[in-house]
């Protein structure tokens, strides 16, 4: 493997891994600070397919 190959691999893997772990960090920070909106479980209500 050439030096160029190592560089391409490290840059490619590093870029996508950094982005992925940054996203995980942002989501976990928002979750821990309570900024994530509260959600309710499935509820069978009306929609266009259930129009009266």
């Amino acid at each position: 493997m050439t030096l160029g190959g190592w560089l391409v691999m490290v840059l490619s893997v590093g870029t996508v891994s950094s982005l992925f772990f940054w996203c995980i960090y942002r989501i976990s920070v928002e979750k821990s600070t309570g900024n994530e909106p509260a959600r309710k479980p499935d509820a069978e209500t009306s929609g266009p397919g259930h129009e009266a």
Binding site: S12, V13, V16, S17, L19, F20, W22, C23, I24, R26, I27, E30, P37, R39
Partner: peptide
Amino acid sequence: RKRDDIVLSGLSATSANEFCEVSLGGL
């Protein structure tokens, strides 16, 4: 829901895919 974040969620979903593809699948 109306005020669910789609910017960070969309980016997270795509980055998870890229991680699986480049960092795992590619090796």
